[in-house]
Design a protein around this nucleic acid. Structure first.
Lengths: 148, 148
DNA sequence: TTGATTTAAGATAAACGAGTCTTAAATTGA
DNA sequence: TCAATTTAAGACTCGTTTATCTTAAATCAA
């Protein structure tokens, strides 16, 4: 698994907010049921995203969470960094500390560009782009196999 | 972390066998100390690789493990599949079951080729190629930061 | 045969990620 | 004010991965 479950859930939640109700507060409970993500777990992930300024929140009735910035100002990379940190874009594929151009492992020259391509995908993609796809092309954010 | 610790250790052990003593049995203890991998853990990983026909072993004095085939006949992909399974080459980046060309998630079109490139790196690289690099160019398989 | 060496196998423990539960605090509307 | 709603925060449980420990079995050499 490239991303942690927390990160997968966080990305899907952010995409949901960007595509379903841009700008308005949505209760975490609603996001949880819409995407099939355990509520208490998602609440904890949302807290982290709020602290990292990815989301904003208000409590009480009509409260919930929303994107902290416009959807075209939030890259997938920002969310991955907030929840999983930079490790996946920096780590040696063989787990060797300090692997880099100075002290490369035997796979470094092949791994570094492949890893960079994955990183570029996250850096160059904004929530806005994907939200558009979800709305215009019907791409999915939830597991359809369990709710046919 | 793309690969599990088991898989990282297994790849490094296989590369060590391919570069240090091709064809001869090396005690797991020796591999363990050479690469800085916990002995009992590596022994268990070796067992799995033996069952998957990546390694062969004999017990007793002058026993140990060696590659089951010639180093140019073993791809990195074979070792990754044996220890981590095919999941990393098949999974949806957002963790959605059944994500594919039929039911794509919003990221699928960008993720699938990036993932395929990573897979190609493992499929197209043999232990022999990397062993050559290790010998001719001094690439490393162990953590040099702890033993300066 | 005996003892040293080494893998084989399984029990056990520690660390971490994933998920659950409970209580507190804030906000809103009646 | 009061009650309902909702996030905030932390403790807790569970399962897997990672790591350690112990014992058994096989092999070889003297």
């Amino acid at each position: 698994m490239l991303l942690s479950k927390s990160c997968e859930y966080g990305l899907r939640a952010a995409l949901h907010l960007a595509s379903v109700a841009p700008g308005t507060y949505v209760p975490i409970r609603d996001v949880s049921t819409a995407l099939g993500i355990p509520y208490h777990f998602l609440a904890k992930i949302a807290q982290a995203m709020i602290q990292q300024k990815i989301l904003a929140s208000t409590r009480g009735p009509h409260g919930g969470v929303r994107l902290a910035r416009a959807a075209d100002q939030i890259t997938l990379n920002a969310i991955v960094l907030a929840l999983d940190g930079p490790a996946i874009f920096e780590e040696c594929v063989l787990g060797l500390p300090g692997c880099g151009t100075q002290q490369p492992c035997p796979l470094h020259d092949q791994w570094a560009p492949a890893r960079e391509r994955v990183r570029a995908m996250f850096v160059e993609t904004t929530l806005d782009e994907l939200a558009t796809r979800i709305q215009t092309q019907g791409f999915r954010l939830a597991d359809l196999t369990s709710t046919p």
